[in-house]
Structures are given as structure tokens and as C-alpha cells.
Amino acid sequence: MCEEVQRKLQSELDSFKNTQKELQKIVLTRQQLDGQLNENEIVKVELDSLATDAKVFKSVGPVLIKTELAEAKQNVTKRMDYISKEIKRIDDQIAVLEKKQDNHRESLQKLQHQFQQAQVKAAMQA
């Protein structure tokens, strides 16, 4: 009885830790996306403040290529849309993982309780 509970406890603990790792990884991704969105927003503000005949360049590898301002604006807006969508997707994943983690934590507590009881029982029998 005691061993069985211990085994369950161990496997539950493992999956809890796995979920925790997954969550950490995904939160990091979310932070990176947030940073990218911020950077794009700042660029958008800067582009919006420019005169229509302003010269805009885009760096592609080691060279600068001249771009139309309208095209640059469109590009940045498109990228912001994409990043926002990604953030939404990641947020959903985070919510799912957090729930999973809570479930694991709960069952862990239950198992710990069971384990303690089993130990007490074993001690009484001995």
C-alpha cells in the first residue's frame, strides 16, 4: 500500500515538474513576443510621424534597401497583427497549462496526505 502510493506520488511529481518547465518556456516566449510588439509599435509611431516623402530604408543582411514609406508602414502593421495573434494563442496555452499545473498540485497534495496516512498505518501495524 505504502509503496504504491509512493510510486503514484513520484509519477505525479514528475508530471508536475514537466508542466512547470513547459510553462516557464512558454512564458519566456510570451515575453519575447511582447518585446517584439513593443518595438514594432515604437517603429510605427516613428513612421507615422514622418513626412510622406521621407526616405526609408530597410536593412536586408548587410545592405540597406530603399523602401516606400507606405510599404514600410503596411509591413509593420502586418507584423503587429501577426504578433498580436501569436500572443493570443500563447495566452490560451498559458491558461491551459496553468490549469493543468493547479490540477497536478491538488492531486499531489491528496497523494501526500494518503502517503502520510499509509505510513502511520504501517507504523501502527509494526
Binding site: E39, N40, I42, V43, E46, L47, L50, A54, K55, V56, F57, K58, S59, V60, L64, T67, A72, V76, R79
Partner: peptide, 13 residues
């Protein structure tokens, strides 16, 4: 001058 405004865009000012 050319200024790097981020996300690989440069603007002449």
C-alpha cells in the same frame, strides 16, 4: 543622417 528606428528600418533625417 540615417537613423536606425528599430526592426531593421532606417530613416533619413
Amino acid at each position: 543622417v540615417l537613423i536606425d528606428i528599430g526592426t531593421r528600418y532606417y530613416v533619413e533625417k
